[in-house]
Amino acid sequence: MTTTTTTTTTYIAFLRAINVGGRTVKMERLRALFAELGLGGVRSYIQSGNVFFTSDATDGPGRAALTARIEEHLERELGYPVPVMLRTVDEVAALLAAEPFRGVEVTPDVRLVIAFLSEPLPAELARPHRSPKGDVEVLGADPGAAYLVIHLRDGKWVTKEVFDKSYRGSVTSRFLHTTEKILAAARKG
């Protein structure tokens, strides 16, 4: 008799287009949609589309298939596309441990933001990079995230598109302090 061991990974799904622009989804409904896919330990954190779950899809192709399956299910059930950026708890912990904003002075007009990417930024988008209006600095990036310093104008984040049209992937952003709280909540599970 052979025994197989299944390894599960805890993921954080960073969702775009949840509870913005009139697209309201209660977290109970969102958790139910993830559970319908057979994902384990489904939990959510705040109303901005952060879902924790376990899955045995651990490799690159498995993760890509899982991402596509979640996106298709959410679009079918909600009626609009919801880009999904999956990261493991360990990946988010490593991202934060690298201190991508080390040395950046935080003032009342500065926000630190992690932009989770569906695909790496194109090589031609040199980093560090500053938006044409100077309100967004891209300090650096790795294949799954870009690190942004937002300079508020009149207390507002004016720039809607951070990257130029050469970037064709999806992006969803979280403030640094929110990402830290998301990671802490995911670890509690």
Rank of each mutant, 00 (worst) to 15 (best):
G21K: 08
E99L: 02
E119I: 08
V106Q: 12
E105Y: 09
A97W: 08
S173A: 14
R76A: 13
I114C: 01
D135C: 06
E71L: 02
L86Q: 04
D59H: 07
Q47E: 09
R111P: 02
S55R: 07
E124F: 05
V113S: 02
L86D: 02
R63D: 03
G40H: 14
V136Q: 04
M85H: 01
R168M: 09
I70G: 01
D109F: 06
G140S: 13
K26Q: 15
L117E: 03
L74W: 02
H129Q: 11
G21R: 07
S166R: 15
K160H: 12
I70A: 03
V138L: 08
E72V: 10
V106F: 02
V158F: 05
T24A: 13
V84F: 00
R43P: 03
L121N: 02
K188S: 15
H73Q: 13
T172Q: 00
V82S: 05
T179E: 01
A93T: 05
R69H: 03
V149Y: 05
A115I: 00
V89C: 11
H73C: 08
R43N: 12
A123Y: 05
S173N: 12
E77G: 04
A126M: 11
A146R: 01
T10Y: 10
W157Q: 13
H73D: 07
I182K: 01
T10L: 08
H177R: 12
W157M: 12
V104G: 00
L152N: 03
A65C: 07
A97Q: 09
V84K: 00
V158T: 09
A115E: 00
L66R: 01
E71N: 03
V110Y: 01
I18Q: 03
A186F: 06
G49K: 07
P132C: 10
T2P: 13
L183S: 08
A94F: 10
T172P: 00
H177L: 05
E161L: 13
S166G: 10
R87S: 04
V110T: 13
G140Y: 05
F116L: 10
L39C: 09
R76F: 05
F53G: 00
T172H: 02
D109H: 14
H151P: 04
R130S: 11
T7M: 14
G79C: 10
V106R: 15
D154E: 15
G49Q: 07
K165Y: 13
D90S: 15
A32V: 07
A35P: 11
D59I: 07
H151V: 08
S118R: 02
A93R: 14
R29E: 14
S118C: 08
Q47I: 08
L139Y: 02
A65Y: 09
R187H: 10
E72G: 10
G62D: 00
L183G: 03
G22I: 11
L33P: 06
D164L: 12
S170D: 12
V171C: 02
G79L: 09
V89Y: 09
K160E: 12
G144W: 06
R31I: 11
L148M: 10
R187F: 08
I114E: 00
S44Q: 09
R16L: 06
D109Q: 14
L176N: 01
T9C: 10
R63K: 13
A13F: 04
T8V: 11
R31E: 15
F53R: 05
S166D: 13
A97N: 08
L78Y: 09
Y147A: 04
F14K: 00
T172G: 01
A126I: 10
S170A: 12
S170C: 11
A184H: 07
